[in-house]
Computed example of a mutant assay.
Amino acid sequence: MSVTTATSSPTRTLAIDASGLAKSYGDKVVLDGVDLSIPEGTVFSLLGPNGAGKTTTVQILSTLIPADRGTARIAGHDLADDADAIRDVIGVTGQFAAVDGLLNAEENLRLMADLNHLSRAEGRRRADELLARFDLTEAARKPVVTFSGGMRRKLDLAMTLVGNPRVIFLDEPTTGLDPRSRRTMWEMIRGLVDDQGVTIFLTTQYLEEADELADSIAVLDGGRLVAHGTAEELKQRIPGGHIRLQFDSAAQLQGAFHLFPAAGRDDEALTLQIPSDGSIATLRAVLDVLDGNRVQARSLTVHTPDLDDVFLTLTAGAGSVPTPDVPKENDR
């Protein structure tokens, strides 16, 4: 399956263009012909159960391991022939914060500046800028070992940005964070795209995170892409959506049931549950039938499948939404 994000167009430059990526470890096939076309300035999210190949995909595209076959271009550079150029324009943030706990925040950032071959003055300026952006200025001289999980993740992302990458791979970046810290990270990630035009390749097992951030989502299972689209497009593919009508009396319920005989009926709650694809056209059709027959409902709610439903339906044998604490080695 080939994946092109929903925001792409024939004239929009691709940040990531991959074809036929494959990887095996012995007899274990981890990736089996993955195609990706991700435009600049978008957030792309790759979902899948543990062992699906998400981390392997990131490792290949970020030049950490070679693919067995397939081709890819990152920011216009060929993965096989120009890996050094790719490393100059990408950043990678893994599941666990790659910061030195014995150094303070400023020292961590200046170390990263040295690794990016920035001058001392430029490294100091860049460190100060990132400390301010991530609200870490007051903690700049404190040992990182004293930081909370959220502060460590913010510093980790700041370190990724020292070299001004145009493509950033975020491999489960909010694992272990509390809800407030997670939302702070979401705001920072979205700001990188909206304000600076950075392209984000996000893997996550928090399905709410993909729903919140991603312009386009792909589902990887057993090394193959099994679905792609926007969050709303994926939800509409899954059965279970419905319109719920509640009435004031049994007579009104009975009258509505005659109009929608395929609906589920709850006499005690005085409700009908009408199957729906979640579209405006379907909702309008239901309202037109009610109005045309002078049937009035007390309330109407539209229920659509969420990404949890999408995940469980599309991933074979997933069983349940995986937890984020499984070691990353399982993803190879």
Rank of each mutant, 00 (worst) to 15 (best):
I168R: 00
I200Q: 02
L155P: 00
P179N: 13
P305D: 07
L225C: 13
D78S: 11
G163M: 01
T11R: 12
D88V: 05
S8K: 07
E172K: 03
L103M: 14
L157F: 13
A72Q: 04
L283K: 03
T301I: 03
L46D: 01
R125Y: 10
G94E: 03
D195W: 11
P179D: 08
P305N: 08
T204M: 05
T184I: 12
D288A: 15
I65R: 09
H77G: 02
L111F: 14
T282R: 05
A127E: 01
R120C: 02
A113E: 02
A262E: 12
S148T: 03
I60V: 09
E129L: 10
N330A: 15
D178N: 06
D248R: 14
L115H: 12
S37Q: 13
G20A: 15
P322G: 01
D325E: 15
F311M: 09
V99W: 05
A218R: 00
D84N: 12
V310W: 00
N293D: 13
A75H: 07
R298C: 05
P39H: 00
A262T: 14
P239A: 13
G191P: 06
T42G: 08
S119T: 14
L270N: 07
A67R: 02
T56E: 10
A210M: 06
D308W: 07
V34F: 04
D309S: 05
D27S: 14
